[in-house]
């Protein structure tokens, strides 16, 4: 093996060592969650801690599904999250494109106002926002949870704008020479090149919508309209701390977001191909 080969192997080993150390640090809390979710309530805090539960309480999971209509909750969460994701990605991409390169009157103002909406601490707009939804007659429906997503969002717009700005400027010029209209440039050049960013944004919005606790609790009152995340909080009592059930619930609730993550991740990888085609 030549020198550069040795060097390569050594750096590969180094990378794996770093990855494994960091990976273990990141995974430990999660492993403990899974382990607690399979324990009896009184065993959760026993020490010295036991990583392998005994007895293994698979029934914690079935207990979760016994008490609440989880199928219904799952459906509510899914359709709200999917609609939110679609609406927000579409509206943010449009806005981000407009706010990236084209120069026009009012561009800065709109961008900074949009940004400013992110700076207001949400706690104090809860009540006014709630009143707006009430005047629209949307209380106790799923509308307040996903309709606003069809009207843009500061985070997504900002994120996609930054991404669009990192694409080569020559793309616009080339498109203009080809006689491409603005809409066609957006649809046929910007969007395909932005797959990694769009996938990332979809992932985030899906996750935020899926994990949203405050929205459903405030806007909904009929129990069967609740989402899975809210349903899981129904395992926390005032005095009783059903930690083992809570842990089981937490494990169940993250599975859909992991699936969405794995789906989105494929698109990050396909981004390499797209990246190499351009030029």
């Amino acid at each position: 093996m030549n020198r550069s080969g040795m060097h390569k192997t050594r750096s590969l080993i180094l990378r794996y060592v770093v990855l494994i150390v960091l990976g273990v640090i990141f995974a430990v809390p999660f492993l403990w969650m899974v382990s607690s979710s399979l324990k009896r309530g009184i065993d959760v805090f026993v020490f010295p801690p036991k990583w392998i539960p005994s007895p293994i309480m698979w029934s914690n999971y079935s207990e979760l599904f016994k008490v609440l209509p989880f199928g219904r909750f799952f459906w509510n969460s899914s359709y709200v999250a999917l609609l939110s994701t679609f609406g927000q990605v579409a509206s943010c991409a449009l806005a981000a494109y407009a706010l990236s390169r084209p120069k026009f009157f009012g561009r800065e103002a709109i961008f900074y106002i949009l940004l400013a909406t992110m700076m207001v601490p949400g706690q104090v707009t809860i009540i006014p926002r709630f009143l707006i939804m009430r005047s629209l007659g949307w209380l106790d429906t799923h509308l307040p949870l996903y309709v606003p997503h069809f009207f843009g969002g500061a985070f997504g717009t900002f994120m996609l704008r930054q991404f669009f700005l990192s694409l080569p400027r020559e793309l616009d010029d080339a498109a203009a020479i080809d006689g491409c209209g603005r809409l066609r440039t957006f649809l046929t050049i910007y969007l395909p090149l932005s797959k990694p960013a769009l996938a990332t944004l979809s992932l985030f919005i899906f996750m935020d919508s899926w994990n949203d606790l405050l929205g459903p609790i405030i806007y909904l009152s009929t129990p069967k309209k609740m989402t899975l995340t809210v349903g899981l909080t129904f395992f926390q009592g005032q005095y009783a701390t059903d930690w083992h059930l809570l842990m089981a619930g937490a494990v169940v609730s993250i599975i859909p977001t992991i699936i969405v993550y794995l789906l989105a991740q494929k698109h990050f990888v396909s981004g390499i191909m797209v990246g190499s085609v351009k030029g």
Partner: peptide
């Protein structure tokens, strides 16, 4: 009957008054 977790109860109660 409407129920929410204790941690959210007061926030929820207030929104019903606001409404």
């Amino acid at each position: 009957h409407e129920y929410v977790p204790f941690a959210e109860y007061w926030r929820k109660l207030m929104t019903t008054y606001a409404a």
